[in-house]
Simulated scan of single mutants.
Amino acid sequence: MKAVFSLLLSSTLVSAGASVYKKRVTGEDLDTGHRWHVAGTDLGIPYVLENGSIGFLFGDTFGTQWPDDGIEWRSPVMLRSAVHPGEEDGIIFDSAAGVAGDGLAPEIMHNGHTGSDGAGATEYSVIPNDGISFPETGEQFVSYMSIQDWTAPWKTNYAGLARSTDGNTFTRLDTKWQNNPENTDPFQMWTLQRDGDYVYAFSVRSGRQPGPMMLQRVPWQKIADQSAYEGWGWNGTTWAWGREPSAILEGNFGEPSVRKLSGGTWAMVYLNLDTLSIVSRTAKGPDEVWSDEKVQVTFEEEPNLYGGFIHPWSTSEENDLHIMVSKWTRDDAGRSTAYHVSQYVGTL
């Protein structure tokens, strides 16, 4: 089970961000717990499925609201929704991957659970980074992290891709970006966005560490071909594709989330570990200059917050930004007091 990073509330933090709380979307007392045993969980990364609805990828998930108990531990898990997040009742889930009706939502791919990843590495858990689908072929791909150790800053074995043709079960591929012994490889936590013929992949280090954010792209038909990826690189004079990736941003990044919104604006959201806030940026394109950070949710509003994943039906024309925010708090004895995902609504 992942260790919660220790965050101390600072008087320098702003008290409120641009986003406002709309609702809690997971919990033992909600449909997610009653119907699919998704009670205690985190992340909830939304992406468009091949049929046009939305899949939400959750990380370490349990059958009770308290992860300490370890009951029905699995990851990743996917819930689905066809309801627009801007509706009055917000996000409502209607099904779970791998379940025909109600019942325990299973892992959608192999997870070592302190055993083997199936290819020789010791694996504690598997955590989703992002998902993407291709309606032309009916395929879905999930980017994931193979977790070696949850001790902060947590370490991955590698980042990989898993493929599905039925939307319920995913097969882990040999397409992997290995971490290094120093745990500093900048291609471990990914977010994916297609635009035309290319999928753009933004990535940072594992463990929510300081470091660079990198940008690569790959023809969408070749997403599983590691040799087809090309970097966005700086040679000291100009930026160009086909080079070794250069840092497009430097920071203390949590998991990045990037989506191209209707209207053409590109939006990015992540946890800034220096300010302990969920922040956003915008750009005119994936390889354009990104704006300064805009604070969306602060630590004061959601203690021990993390994540910040953009719902792809957010819009730039109406300037509404729907993001999924995780919270994991503990009492003085180390017992969990909250472990869930909430929907926030903000502006770009």
Rank of each mutant, 00 (worst) to 15 (best):
W220S: 02
T238P: 03
D174F: 00
G86R: 12
L8V: 10
D68S: 10
P181T: 08
H322S: 05
E136A: 12
S6A: 06
D117K: 13
Q221M: 02
S316H: 01
P256N: 05
M213Q: 09
D42W: 04
A82Q: 10
D331F: 10
A224Y: 03
R330A: 14
L348V: 01
T337M: 09
S15N: 15
G231Y: 07
G86W: 07
Q140R: 13
T282L: 10
M145E: 14
D320K: 08
E182T: 14
A100W: 14
A162I: 10
S133M: 08
T151E: 08
T175M: 13
E230C: 08
Q188A: 13
G231I: 11
K2P: 07
M1N: 01
A3G: 11
T275E: 09
I45S: 04
M214H: 10
A201T: 10
I132V: 05
N319P: 00
E317L: 11
K260S: 03
T156A: 15
F56I: 14
L13R: 04
T165P: 04
P135C: 06
W241R: 06
V269P: 04
I91G: 04
P312S: 04
Y144R: 09
E50K: 13
G33T: 06
V4G: 06
G308L: 00
E182K: 15
I92D: 01
K284F: 00
A97D: 13
S19F: 07
A121Y: 08
F58P: 09
V99Q: 09
G55P: 12
D149T: 08
V77N: 01
M109I: 15
T275F: 02
A162S: 05
A105R: 14
W36S: 00
I71R: 15
T315M: 03
G63V: 15
V142I: 14
D197S: 11
Y200Q: 00
K22R: 13
L161W: 02
L249A: 12
D185R: 14
G40N: 09
T165V: 10
P128Y: 02
T12C: 02
Y229Q: 14
Y200G: 03
D287Q: 14
T169P: 03
G120W: 11
V4A: 14
E293K: 13
Q178E: 12
E230T: 14
E182H: 02
K222W: 14
T265A: 01
G264V: 00
V341K: 07
I278R: 00
F141Q: 06
L43P: 09
T61W: 00
T169S: 02
S342D: 13
P286K: 05
R163C: 10
A18V: 08
K294T: 13
T184K: 11
R24I: 06
L49M: 13
T156I: 11
E250L: 09
R35H: 15
R243N: 15
E28Y: 09
F62C: 04
G59S: 08
T329F: 00
P67D: 07
S6N: 09
G59W: 06
V269I: 07
D42F: 07
Y158Q: 08
S257Y: 02
D274K: 08
P135F: 05
Y158D: 01
G70V: 04
G334W: 14
G70T: 03
T329Y: 03
